[in-house]
Amino acid sequence: MKIHIKYMVSLRCKIAVKEELDKLKLKQSSIELGEVNLKKDISGDERELLRKGLLKKGLELIDDKKSLLIEKTKTTIIELIHYSEKYPKVNYSDYISEKLDYNYNHLASLFSEINGTTIANYIILNKIERVKELLLYDELSLTEISLLMEYSSVAHLSHQFKKITGLTPTYFKKIKKHKKRIMLEEL
């Protein structure tokens, strides 16, 4: 049985979900971002206990198809930007559409309707959070980060970074110990 979970965007979330499943003695064959494959169907009572346990950890079970599609879209973007070694050579809209097997215009319209922001803006917010993370690691130059994140230039990255954060990447790097990153769940 497959269940879908909202706000499950990190390893920490996977661990939290596993803890809740273990409490209820629910065996799983896999736990991925936003999705758990259980070895057997669960009862209504078990589902309710799981729902309550997940809510305490800031996670939610997804029951309706629209919310599920939005979460799959977000998960696809997060996996691509935060956990991929290399970005695809196709544009984001083609990648998301192909990965989810949905028309991109439909996804974009639904995403905007439900979230009040566009997929493009959500991608930008995630890219900037990833850039912040890379700046905090202090292992790559701004040029290397720009190339890694598929920006057309350092100037483009810097402009987008400043537009979102109000700071230049260089200034952010200087004050990095005092600046907190936004949790992926909050984007």
Rank of each mutant, 00 (worst) to 15 (best):
M1H: 08
H4R: 15
K6L: 09
Y7A: 10
V9D: 05
S10P: 04
S10A: 11
R12C: 08
C13I: 03
I15N: 12
V17A: 07
E19K: 15
I31R: 07
I31D: 00
E32D: 05
G34F: 05
E35G: 01
K39H: 05
I42D: 06
D45P: 03
R51C: 05
L55M: 15
G58K: 04
D64V: 06
D64E: 09
S67W: 09
S67L: 11
L68M: 14
L69P: 06
T73A: 12
I77M: 07
L80C: 12
L80T: 14
I81M: 01
H82A: 02
E85R: 12
N91S: 09
Y95M: 08
Y95I: 12
Y95S: 05
S97K: 08
N105V: 14
N105D: 15
S112F: 13
E113F: 10
E113T: 15
I114W: 02
N115P: 03
T117W: 00
T118H: 02
A120G: 11
A120W: 04
Y122E: 01
I123Q: 04
I124P: 03
N126G: 01
K127C: 00
K127Q: 03
R130Y: 04
K132M: 05
L136W: 06
L136C: 11
D138N: 13
E139C: 08
L142M: 11
E144R: 05
L148R: 11
E150F: 03
Y151W: 09
Y151C: 07
S153C: 06
V154L: 03
L157A: 03
S158A: 11
F161K: 04
F161S: 03
F161A: 02
K163C: 01
I164S: 07
I164T: 12
I164G: 02
T165A: 08
L167G: 07
T168A: 13
P169T: 09
P169K: 03
F172N: 09
F172Q: 10
K174R: 10
K174C: 03
K176D: 13
K176T: 12
H178R: 15
K180E: 10
